[in-house]
């Protein structure tokens, strides 16, 4: 693996396993994000998978060290960039897009697919931000079964600074809020896949981080790998569901570590 100073830490990987997303603010040359937004403003039709040909500066997003570092950490050094990408323009004065997944549900304890949601323009809560529900990515729930939900405790808007990319687990429940502003909210979606199972950690792993014992006093407030994987409950689900979440997270962590390495969980 070539050195990448933007690999994720143990805590960031653990939080991704729990929450199903990770945000990165890209450090591209001055004006790049703004120029991309202006080009998207001017589009009169959606080029679909050809969006990176129409707006070539988007390739700088895919090539940024912070992007390759995060993807290497989550999907392995030989991750692939999918040919499908899409420009999502949330037009002014348009309503909610309800909870959904982008394809069939593929519940897997491994992390095999991620989306990259890139926002070239700052998104405020009134601009129709993407909405996500942290902690839903391991649920075997296709879109039809989300149809009677509207507001869910723990949902968050991706109200982000210009130049942010959010990496989300492919199965994370997502939708959009209404755009009540007069500004177009742009998002360009990319997809990424794992090509090989890990035989060792592909992030900035420190084995010492697995030596901490569970802190039952701090629980969710604690910031160790074991406590995050054990105690975090972003949805506030029941004990039964939470125990199942723990088991799936544990399996996911082991898969990422490489199967020969024991779990950090008690």
């Amino acid at each position: 693996m070539s050195p990448n100073t933007h690999l994720l830490t143990d805590l960031e990987v653990a939080r991704f396993i729990v929450n199903g997303y990770h945000m990165v603010e890209l450090d591209l040359p001055d004006g790049v994000h703004e120029h991309i937004a202006e080009q998207l403003d001017a589009l009169t039709s959606n080029p679909g998978d050809g969006i990176t040909d129409t707006v070539p500066e988007l390739r700088q997003v895919l090539e940024a060290n912070a992007v390759t570092g995060a993807l290497t950490s989550l999907l392995g050094a030989e991750y692939t960039v999918g040919p499908h990408r899409h420009w999502h323009c949330k037009e002014p004065h348009t309503g909610t897009l309800h909870w959904h997944q982008d394809a069939t549900n593929n519940r897997d304890s491994r992390i095999v697919r991620c989306l990259g949601l890139y926002y070239p323009r700052t998104v405020t809560p009134d601009m129709g931000p993407t909405m996500i529900v942290p902690g839903t990515h391991f649920r075997n729930a296709p879109t039809d079964r989300m149809a009677t939900y509207t507001n869910i405790r723990g949902q968050i808007p991706l109200a982000v600074k210009a130049g942010t990319i959010a990496f989300t687990h492919f199965d994370l429940w997502h939708g959009t809020a209404a755009n009540r502003s007069n500004i177009k909210r742009h998002m360009v979606k990319f997809s990424f896949s794992r090509s090989k199972d890990n035989t060792s950690p592909t992030w900035n792993h420190d084995p010492a981080n697995l030596n901490d014992h569970r802190n039952w006093n701090l629980r969710e407030k604690a910031a160790t790998v074991g406590d995050i994987l054990t105690f975090a409950n972003p949805l506030g689900v029941s004990q039964s569901d939470h125990y199942k979440e723990r088991a799936i997270r544990n399996q996911c962590w082991n898969d990422l570590m490489g199967s020969s390495i024991p779990t950090p969980l008690d």
Partner: peptide, 10 residues
């Protein structure tokens, strides 16, 4: 008892 589906009980 191993898998998760929808959120909560409707």
């Amino acid at each position: 008892d191993k898998d998760l589906d929808v959120i909560g009980y409707e």
